[in-house]
C-alpha cells in the first residue's frame, strides 16, 4: 500500500518527474522531495497557514492536500515569487515595514497577500486582515504586515502585480 507511484508535479513553472507515496502531503513533497523548504509546516491540520501555497493561483493549504492530487495543476511556492535576485515589491515592502521577525509564517503570508493583491489590487485594512486571518503570526502582532501590504497596494498601478 505504501508503494510509490510516478507523479508529474508542476511547481513554479517547472515540471518535476518524481515518485511519491499516495499519502505524502504536498507540503512534505515540496520540502523533502523537491527541496523547496520555503514552504513551512506549522500544524498539519490547516489551522496555522504556514504551509499556504498557491494552487492554480489560489491560496490553499499544502498540508491538507496530497501531492498526488495536484498533478496537472500549477503550484506556486515562495521560491516561485522571485524570478531573479531581486525582491518583489511586496517582499521589499515586508522588509521596509519590518513585517517579519522569525520568518516562519512569512512565506504563507506572502503567498496569501500575493493572491489577495491579484484579486483586489487596492484592498482596505479590513480586507487585508480578513484575507490574512487564516495565517497565524506569533511574532509581529500583524500590524507591520498589514502596513506592508497596504503600502504595496497604494504604490502599485492596477496591473503592476
Amino acid at each position: 500500500m505504501n508503494s510509490r507511484v510516478p507523479l508529474k508535479l508542476t511547481v513554479n513553472g517547472e515540471t518535476f518527474d518524481i515518485e511519491v507515496e499516495p499519502r505524502w502531503l504536498l507540503s512534505d513533497v515540496l520540502r523533502h522531495q523537491l527541496g523547496l523548504v520555503g514552504t513551512h509546516v506549522g500544524c498539519e491540520q490547516g489551522a496555522c497557514g504556514a504551509c499556504t501555497v498557491l494552487i492554480d493561483g489560489k491560496p490553499e493549504r499544502s498540508c491538507l492536500t496530497f501531492a498526488i492530487q495536484v498533478e496537472g495543476q500549477q503550484i506556486t511556492t515562495v521560491e516561485g515569487l522571485t524570478r531573479d535576485e531581486n525582491l518583489t515589491p511586496l517582499q521589499e515592502a515586508f522588509s521596509e515595514h519590518h513585517a517579519l521577525q522569525c520568518g516562519y509564517c512569512t512565506p504563507g503570508m506572502l503567498l496569501t497577500a500575493t493572491a489577495l493583491l491579484r484579486l483586489e489590487p487596492h484592498p482596505n485594512e479590513r480586507q487585508v486582515r480578513e484575507a490574512l486571518s487564516g495565517n497565524v503570526c506569533r511574532c509581529t502582532g500583524y500590524q507591520f504586515i498589514v502596513d506592508a501590504i497596504l503600502a504595496v497596494a497604494g504604490d502599485t498601478k492596477e496591473d503592476a502585480r
Binding site: 515562495v78 521560491e79 520568518g103 512569512t106
Partner: peptide
Amino acid sequence: VKRVEDPRLLTGQARYLDDID
C-alpha cells in the same frame, strides 16, 4: 534600519531545523 536577515527569510532561502536533510 531594515534587517539584514530579511532577504533570505522573504525568499524561502532560510534554513530552519526541519530543512536540514
